[in-house]
């Protein structure tokens, strides 16, 4: 066990965990931030996507010991009230079916638009194909990303 000082959604947090613990489980089990989802544990589905220094990152294989001073943003911290343009676009297109993967989709889309404010279809596909939606909401995800980009 070791003490880690983390900056999560702008707040300082301290956890005492095994250094190998993935950030996903630090968030979910230790910090009561359950918006970041467990889907596969091997960085193949994107449900656990967070931002590390503003860049999309799979948290299920990221040991807490590697975070250092880098800031973490989770879906709970993307905005206080769901007002982030990507969240708003998701609501406008009523994207979710079961909703389980959508936090990861939104975090990935938000990072994409930050790096590339006006992505082409091909760029959206390239960026989003690591995030599985088992309900098959892909066409709505694409439309929502375009709305967020246009807004």
């Amino acid at each position: 066990m070791a003490i880690f000082n983390l900056t999560i959604n702008g707040k300082k947090q301290q956890v005492d965990v095994d250094p190998s613990t993935p950030v996903l489980w630090v968030l979910r089990d230790h910090l009561n931030l359950a918006g970041t989802k467990y889907g596969c544990g091997i960085a193949q589905c994107g449900a656990c996507t967070i931002h590390l220094e503003g860049v999309a990152m799979r948290s299920c294989m990221l040991p807490v010991s590697l975070v250092g001073n880098q800031s973490i943003t989770t879906i709970e911290g993307l905005s206080e009230d769901g007002s982030h343009p990507v969240q708003q676009a998701w609501l406008e297109h009523d994207v979710a079916q079961c909703g389980y993967c959508q936090a990861g989709q939104i975090m990935n889309a938000a990072a994409l638009l930050k790096a590339n404010p006006n992505p082409s279809d091909a760029e959206i596909e390239a960026a989003m194909s690591g995030n599985i939606c088992r309900c098959g909401t892909y066409t709505r995800i694409r439309a929502a990303i375009k709305t967020a980009a246009a807004g």
Partner: peptide, 21 residues
């Protein structure tokens, strides 16, 4: 009519079984 849980889903509220504590 939009999903009644829409806002909770996009803000990562703990709605699912795995989130229960």
């Amino acid at each position: 009519r939009r999903n009644v849980d829409g806002l909770k889903i996009v803000t990562g509220q703990p709605l699912f079984g795995l989130d229960y504590r």
